[in-house]
Design a protein around this nucleic acid. Structure first.
Lengths: 258, 258
DNA sequence: TGTGTTCCGATAGAATGTGATCGGAATTGT
DNA sequence: ACAATTCCGATCACATTCTATCGGAACACA
């Protein structure tokens, strides 16, 4: 049996994680044929890179989609039905001449793809990947602004530069993708820096619209972005829990089911 | 066993990589009938060219091959000889722990590919493509900062956001790619906004180093970035016109020919 | 023939990866 | 609340790999 390269081992850990959601140090050590100490070290480096979250006894996937893995596109395709419907509904609100903002996420990514044809559109985003969608379309009447910053694993530019950039800008409409929403904790994300940047997005927009599929309900990320009631609208799918719909209708001006 | 040309060896390494996803130095040395040292050298040159990513013990395919447009890479490959030499010389000036800045351009792109392995490096750039090079390498000790702004056709983020971002930053070393240089007009670029951003780069750096191959001499772009004498050094190729060398030596503290 | 130049192999020392051990922290069971 | 168990991080020893040089062989060019 030929030895395995450290990077290959990292890859297999991530693969196992995507498949099982949870991995244990002991089982990984057995599967990979290395000591537990080595597995711990691997988990540490992967966690430092933000590719997973360590828990006692093993590791789990971060709720954030890892954009540079094949999983990004794949995950997009997986739930494509609902996400595409949400993106389509959201795109229907965008009129030529508007300025909009999109944060990083798979739903906003899908939305971006539907906006490339709209004329005289100004787009502000902190996702290089979303910016790339517009660059590739090369619509000369569109104005694409990328905020600066440091990139997180989920392809979002965050940090002081993104905040100061967003502080200088004002857009008509914000579409904000989130990682979780509950009645108590509002809209949340697992990354503190992303939460901060998303708050700056909210400040920079005249109107805020959350886009989130039904799986986000009941999920709480590490960090609150904003309470439920302090945004203008939410666009979700029709599979959203009926009780959640009631709660959301009471807090929000507008709940739209795609 | 018949000897093999270096380029043929490179080809076989890439073939093996495509087939196996991973190769290790020891097995390659055995297969190709050369020493491990030679394999390492091959992997280094291929990694500098962006054809693969080195990992401990071997190499793997780049995770994000889609990010490289054929046109861009092709242009890079065209003049690869001199540009690679310049990039290599420039990379020799970068030490672990430094903070450096790179503007957008093919020469700085080549330089970026050579810096992905340097530890504790902070990199400021206005080129999403250069940022992507570092993202792909995923060196956890490196800190990659992307300025914001609007993207030009040459993949540079420019405009007010880039200026305000660079106004907040200070780096040890700037490597600035330019489009033209002459005795009268200094360093120039065809794009006014890029010129402005490049000036901000210069202000943000303790030391400024221009990187430009010999074809840039005698070319004047629309807009001056800075006169010849107001930067610290120029790195160019040995094919640079001798008369140009004289003029440059008089204006600059340091002229380095790769 | 002499002189570079380029490519390759060898070596040494530095850096990194790995496994074992142990004290202490976290978790679980009662 | 307490003990048993499991898990974690720090540290050491050892193995592997990497980088930086050095010197030699092959080749080109006067």
């Amino acid at each position: 049996m030929t030895e395995m390269l450290a990077s290959a081992r990292h890859q297999r850990i991530l693969d196992a994680l995507r498949e099982r959601e949870q991995v244990r140090v002991t089982s990984l050590a057995a599967e990979l044929g290395v000591s537990e100490m080595t597995v711990r070290r691997d988990l540490n480096t992967l966690a430092a890179r933000g590719a997973l979250v360590k828990v006692h006894g093993g590791a789990t996937l971060d709720a954030a989609p890892t954009s540079n893995e094949p999983g990004f596109v794949h995950k997009l395709a997986l739930e494509s039905g609902e996400k595409q419907a949400i993106a389509q509904t959201a795109a229907g609100l965008v009129r030529p001449g508007m300025s909009i903002a999109l944060n990083s996420g798979t739903t906003t990514y899908a939305l971006a793809a539907q906006c490339t044809g709209i004329k005289d559109l100004t787009v502000v985003t902190n996702s290089p990947r979303i910016a790339e969608v517009f660059y590739a379309a090369a619509n000369p009447s569109q104005n694409i602004i990328l905020t600066g910053g440091i990139r997180t694993i989920s392809d979002a530019l965050v940090g002081p530069l993104s905040l100061s950039a967003l502080g200088q800008l004002h857009v008509d409409l914000l579409f904000l993708g989130v990682h979780g929403m509950t009645a108590e904790d509002g809209f949340t994300t697992p990354n503190m820096l992303e939460a901060q940047t998303n708050q700056a997005f909210i400040k920079a927009a005249a109107q805020q619209i959350i886009v989130a599929d039904h799986t986000k309900w009941g999920v709480t990320g590490l960090c609150q972005i904003v309470p439920l009631g302090q945004v203008d609208a939410l666009i979700s799918g029709h599979r959203l829990d009926p009780e959640a719909q009631n709660i959301l209708r009471q807090s929000l001006d507008s709940l739209i089911l795609a």
